[in-house]
């Protein structure tokens, strides 16, 4: 029997704790408990109102068994087309703008001033919630899909540029060097040395972003930026749950189709 064994046999064994310092561990546990108590305590729930609402909730649930596509068919059609159009157009414009910004935001091929400007654009676009941007753009450009289109384009730029920039930063440098060695101009360098490497990934990301843009376009209508959201909002306001159910089913269906398509396309491209 070794000394190390002697030291341990007969003594209780405990799993070594995740956080080694017991002071820190207890501070974190007690801190979380206090936070939870305070947070739950600050919730002022009107249970009577919630209880009354259950009935309405059930009505809404039942509405899914007989969704009403017909009564407001015209409005639904206009809203859906607007949503799809916004998603498509903003994705295209977003990609077009993302490519130069993405190239500029990649540290390994960009010069510092351009890098900083592009990174700032990316950071602002990512930090601002789509809804907040939409509100501001509606205030500036007026109600309608133009504001929604601009919002989604702006969001797409932040999303794609960042990923594109990261992709370029990760990519094989040798290939870009090789093109430089042939004495190519900087434009040729981008077109032949860098883009071919990132295009498959870019296509995959764009399809994914189209999917996101459609989902987002469904809510922008709530703040007046066009799309199916406005129709949905109206149907809720009128308590027309059958119509609302129909719209939600359409959204879910479209999202599923887009997700399926994007899965296929991404698998084929990569």
């Amino acid at each position: 029997m070794s000394a190390a064994l002697d030291a341990r046999v007969g003594k209780p064994w405990k799993k070594p704790p995740f956080i080694a310092s017991s002071a820190l561990r207890w501070t974190m546990i007690i801190g979380s408990v206090i936070y939870l108590v305070l947070a739950i305590g600050s919730f002022d729930v009107n249970w009577a109102r919630v209880y009354r609402g259950l009935d309405r909730g059930w009505q809404f649930f039942v509405a899914f068994t007989h969704p009403d596509f017909v009564s407001r068919a015209g409005e639904i059609k206009v809203g859906m087309i607007e949503s799809v159009v916004m998603a498509l157009a903003s994705t295209v414009v977003g990609i077009a703008v993302s490519i130069p910004i993405g190239l500029g935001a990649a540290r390994n091929i960009s010069v510092l001033p351009i890098y900083l400007v592009c990174r700032a654009i990316v950071a602002i676009s990512r930090a601002l919630n789509e809804i907040v941007v939409a509100i501001l753009l509606v205030a500036i450009f007026g109600f309608g899909p133009l504001a929604g289109f601009l919002t989604l384009s702006f969001a797409t730029i932040g999303f794609l540029s960042k990923l594109l920039a990261e992709e370029i930063e990760d990519m094989d440098k040798v290939q870009a060097e090789a093109v430089r060695a042939t004495g190519a101009t900087w434009l040729q360098r981008y077109v032949f040395g860098i883009l071919p490497q990132v295009i498959p990934r870019l296509i995959g990301l764009s399809i994914y972003r189209l999917d996101i843009n459609f989902r987002e376009s469904a809510v922008l209508g709530i703040v007046g930026a066009g799309g199916i959201g406005a129709t949905l909002n109206t149907s809720f306001d009128r308590y027309e749950f059958d119509t609302a159910a129909a719209i939600l089913l359409l959204i879910i269906g479209t999202v599923m189709v887009l997700e399926y398509l994007s899965g296929i396309i991404r698998a084929r491209v990569q």
Partner: peptide, 26 residues
């Protein structure tokens, strides 16, 4: 809850000692 009987814990240490790994237990 990792509350194994003491006899199991002891046996585990003995086995680890037998294969020369008792210091690696944790």
């Amino acid at each position: 809850l990792r509350k194994f009987p003491q006899s199991d814990v002891d046996e585990a240490f003995r086995l680890l000692d037998r294969v020369g790994l008792v210091e690696m237990a944790d």
